[in-house]
Design a protein around this nucleic acid. Structure first.
Length: 420
RNA sequence: GGAGGGGUGGCCGAGUGGCUAAAGGCAGCAGACUGUAAAUCUGCCGACGUACGUCUACGUAGGUUCGAAUCCUACCCCCUCCA
């Protein structure tokens, strides 16, 4: 199509958020003619969202920034069914209490990215359990079930994949797309919602809703999907040593979140800046042209901006400052993870490997020992060789603190604690 | 309900009585090289003990055996086909 005219679509396309759209021109016209409401659904399968969800969240944020109304749909109802998309195996059934707890955790993140309230472009949050829980089987089947063709559903990737691999697909899961389609219609009725967005794996489910709206009420609904974001090396984004990169700081501290972005691969920097920050495109063009070591500046900018969005400006500044002191000055920085030992323990001396474990830099004594033997541990930047070396008062620098490091990136502080 | 197949370490996946803490791959960690990047090479990769060692582990619970992931029994779960 020709260039979109609406602010919303222009932004979405220029920044790399668009994968597929059911009718880009008509959607563009709708967005030009006034405020639209759009939604994305999030199932409550974990108690925090992670960076894999960030593309969707940023979509809603841009929607709001360009004058439209975002709807966050919590899948309190659909989580009980389980989305087969992109899954090789049947999902475990989650209990109602699990779902409620997960929903509470997920809400925390949205409060940071969107502004909620009663205003015209304020975001709203709804829970599909509100209507799905009340559905009656036979009436639902007669009214909505007849609009779904099993022939077509069998062709959907989410279903086809399972069948081709001869993996089980339960009837429960098979119904997921019907419920998601119904959600869209319900939101259109309740909130005047005309657009559903989501990851590319949601295409089939989204189109199902668009079709249902047309068939039942002749509504013009739109679907738009975002690309699956992988790193340049092809890995699914958002894994670290500890696991997923969570958005909630009780699952992943802001400092580690910052580090995640700081360690972006060179070839991903420009793309990530466009997707995960709100820096002007001209600025991003400049940053991604930096070469070699200079590109590290762009990575810091990325880390600062992304962390500020998720954890706030102050947390981003702290993380950046901690990183600067630690990596660029090789010094001690407040803000690193800290362990304390009693003065009496220092007096006796503590075996080095125990300190490494206590600092959370190794999972077991054996691992800590191996790390030290392999020359992977440094005490105040001096490589350690003896895992039995005693850490004592003498190792504490000014301020009564010492730094212990594993590898180039993981650091912790050790200091004297108050007598227990 | 019937017949058959299967449950092994974070994941995939070998292994059908001792040589198996369990091949191989992936993921991960460390070292070298660097730019807190990527790629490459090297080493590590159940827990505990400074090594020889001990313990825990192959769906669960028992049993056979000097010795079991491997054999037997019961149970649980999953898959395929048939009804």
């Amino acid at each position: 199509m020709t260039q979109p005219r609406s602010e919303f679509l222009k932004t979405v396309i220029d920044r790399g958020f668009l994968h597929q759209c059911t009718d880009l021109e008509a959607l563009d016209a709708a967005a030009m003619s006034g405020r639209i409401a759009a939604y994305i659904g999030f199932d409550c399968t974990a108690d925090s969202l992670h960076v894999g969800n960030l593309v969707s969240i940023m979509m809603l944020r841009w929607l709001q920034r360009t004058g439209h109304r975002p709807i966050v749909l919590m899948g309190g109802g659909t989580t009980k069914v389980g989305d087969p998309s992109g899954k090789d195996e049947v999902r475990k059934l989650l209990s109602e209490t699990d779902i409620a707890r997960n929903m509470a955790g997920i809400k925390l993140a949205f409060a940071k990215f969107l502004s909620f309230g009663q205003g015209k472009t304020d975001a709203v949050m709804v829970n599909n359990a509100d209507w799905l829980d009340r559905l009656e089987y036979i009436p639902f089947l007669r009214e909505y079930g007849r609009h779904f063709s099993v022939n077509r559903m069998l062709g959907l990737d989410s279903v086809k994949l399972r069948l081709e691999r001869e993996q089980p697909l339960t009837f429960l899961e098979f119904n997921y797309m019907i419920l998601q389609a119904y959600d869209f219609l319900e939101l259109a009725r309740r909130q005047g919602c005309v657009l559903q967005m989501g990851g590319s794996d949601q295409w089939g489910n989204i189109v199902g809703g668009v079709d249902l709206g047309r068939r039942i009420e002749d509504r013009a609904l739109f679907g738009l999907t975002t690309p699956l974001i992988t790193t340049a090396s092809g890995a699914k984004m958002g894994k670290t040593a500890q696991g997923a990169v969570w958005l909630n700081d009780d699952r992943l501290p802001a400092y580690d979140y910052w580090q995640f972005w700081r360690n972006t691969e060179d070839s991903d920097v420009g793309r990530f800046l466009r997707l995960f920050t709100e820096l002007p495109l001209a600025e991003i063009d400049r940053l991604e042209k930096l070469r070699g070591q200079e590109l590290n500046e762009a990575k810091k900018t990325l880390a600062n901006a992304a962390t500020a969005l998720c954890h706030g400006e102050a947390a981003a500044r702290d993380a950046a400052e901690t990183a600067r002191k630690t990596f660029e000055e090789g010094g001690l920085a407040e803000g690193l993870p800290t362990v304390t030992f009693a003065a009496a323990q220092f007096a006796q001396g503590i075996e080095a490997f125990r300190v490494v474990v206590e600092a959370g830099l190794a999972k077991s004594n054996g691992e800590a020992r191996r790390l030290i033997r392999q020359g992977g541990v440094r005490l105040n930047d001096a490589v350690m060789t003896d895992e039995m070396q005693k850490i004592t008062h003498r190792d504490l620098g000014a301020g009564g603190t010492l730094k212990i490091s594993v590898g180039g990136k993981r650091h912790a502080l050790v200091r004297i604690g108050l007598p227990a």
